[in-house]
Each structure stands twice: as C-alpha cells, then as structure tokens.
Amino acid sequence: TTEYTFTDDEEARRAIEELKKRGLTFRYEKHGTTWRVRVD
C-alpha cells in the first residue's frame, strides 16, 4: 500500500483521475484541506 498526501485540490483530483485511468484500486479521504490517497 502506498499513501499519498495532497493539500491542493486540483493536484489531488488529477492524481485520482490518473489512478482511475490506470485501473488501480485506491481509496481516498479528505480531512479539511488535506487529501489522503491510498493505493493498494
């Protein structure tokens, strides 16, 4: 499991789109302004 942290909404959304394109399994949660994206 790899975890990424983003504080920029645009950056987080781009990363999420990219992961979807690659067909990877991931989860994300947003805490205030911080996004945590975990890739299995």
Rank of each mutant, 00 (worst) to 15 (best):
T1V: 14
T1F: 15
T1C: 13
T1E: 10
T1L: 11
T1P: 12
T1D: 08
T2E: 08
T2W: 15
T2C: 14
E3R: 04
E3K: 03
E3L: 13
E3M: 12
E3I: 14
E3Q: 06
Y4M: 08
Y4N: 02
Y4W: 13
Y4E: 02
Y4A: 02
T5C: 12
T5K: 05
T5N: 05
T5H: 07
T5I: 15
T5W: 15
F6H: 01
F6P: 00
F6E: 00
F6D: 00
F6K: 00
T7G: 05
T7H: 12
T7S: 08
D8T: 13
D9K: 08
D9T: 05
D9M: 07
D9F: 13
E10P: 03
E10F: 09
E10Y: 09
E10M: 10
E10N: 12
E11N: 06
E11C: 08
E11P: 03
E11K: 07
E11V: 08
A12E: 00
A12W: 06
R13G: 05
R13V: 07
R13S: 06
R13F: 13
R14P: 01
R14Y: 07
R14A: 12
R14T: 08
R14L: 10
A15C: 15
A15F: 15
A15N: 04
A15D: 01
I16L: 07
I16P: 00
I16N: 03
I16V: 04
E17F: 09
E17V: 07
E17H: 09
E17Q: 10
E17R: 12
E17D: 10
E18Y: 12
E18A: 10
L19E: 00
L19G: 01
L19M: 07
L19T: 01
L19Y: 06
L19W: 10
L19H: 01
L19Q: 00
K20Q: 11
K20R: 13
K20Y: 10
K20G: 05
K20C: 11
K21N: 09
K21R: 13
K21L: 10
R22E: 06
R22P: 01
R22K: 12
R22F: 06
R22T: 08
G23M: 03
G23R: 04
G23F: 03
L24M: 09
L24D: 04
L24R: 05
T25W: 12
T25S: 13
F26D: 00
F26G: 02
F26E: 00
F26H: 03
F26V: 15
R27T: 15
R27G: 06
R27P: 00
R27K: 11
R27I: 13
R27W: 15
R27H: 14
Y28L: 12
Y28F: 11
E29S: 10
E29L: 06
E29P: 00
E29A: 07
E29V: 10
E29Y: 13
E29I: 10
K30Q: 07
K30Y: 05
K30P: 01
K30E: 02
K30R: 10
K30A: 03
K30H: 07
H31A: 07
H31Y: 11
H31P: 01
H31V: 14
H31L: 13
H31F: 11
H31S: 11
H31Q: 13
G32W: 02
G32D: 06
G32K: 03
G32E: 05
T33M: 09
T33H: 12
T33E: 13
T33W: 04
T33P: 07
T33Y: 06
T33I: 09
T33S: 13
T34C: 07
T34K: 05
T34M: 10
T34I: 14
T34R: 05
W35F: 04
W35E: 01
W35G: 01
R36L: 15
R36W: 15
R36C: 12
V37Q: 00
V37M: 03
V37P: 02
V37S: 00
V37I: 15
R38G: 03
R38V: 15
R38D: 05
R38Y: 15
V39Q: 02
V39P: 02
V39T: 03
V39L: 07
V39A: 02
V39K: 00
D40C: 15
D40H: 12
D40E: 13
D40V: 14
D40P: 08
